[in-house]
């Protein structure tokens, strides 16, 4: 069955089982591998994308739930890789292995959209679904603050 959805402003018609999690549709079918697999159970946040601007765990969402809607992945967050969060992430050299960082940045992007000046507590609440096994949390907090300043 075909599912129609927009990914990063491009219309995709994906010929997949509608029950397939959005994550695998994005990675295996649409071929965009910036969105990562970490747990498959909505427990780690590595697969976070924006669905109509809201952060969702794409591993736990059937692709059919995204039909007719707009998905933003890390590849589409900014045209040139210079979203304030991406810039702040690089200025503070946040990534270690980097694997969780797509999901971290997407969760942070959704946070800044609804709360442009988050406190540490806001950040901890919004970001606690995103595991970083390399332990970059203290830099993630700083980078979100830096991006919030840059946007204001």
């Amino acid at each position: 069955m075909a599912v129609e959805l927009t990914i990063n402003d491009d219309l995709h018609t994906l010929d997949v089982d509608p029950q397939m999690p959005l994550l695998w549709a994005i990675r295996d079918i649409a071929g965009l591998t910036g969105t990562k697999f970490g747990c498959g159970k909505a427990l780690c946040g590595a697969c976070t994308v924006l669905l109509d601007g809201q952060a969702v765990r794409s591993c736990a969402l059937p692709v059919s739930a995204a039909a007719g809607r707009s998905v933003t992945t890390i590849e589409g967050l900014s045209a040139d890789g210079n979203h304030p969060l991406q810039v702040a992430w690089r200025e503070l050299n946040v990534p270690q292995c980097g694997y969780c960082q797509s999901g971290q940045i997407m969760s942070a992007a959704a946070l800044l959209e609804r709360n442009p000046q988050p406190t540490d507590t806001d950040i901890d609440t919004a970001m606690s679904g995103n595991i970083c096994r390399c332990g970059t949390y203290t830099r993630i907090r700083k980078a979100i603050h830096r991006a919030a300043e840059d946007r204001s």
Binding site: L32, T35, I74, Q86, R90, V94, P95, G98, Q101, I105
Partner: peptide, 13 residues
Amino acid sequence: DLIDGFAMTTGVA
């Protein structure tokens, strides 16, 4: 700065 910083923050790594 990290040599892979750009790749790791844009999903192309």
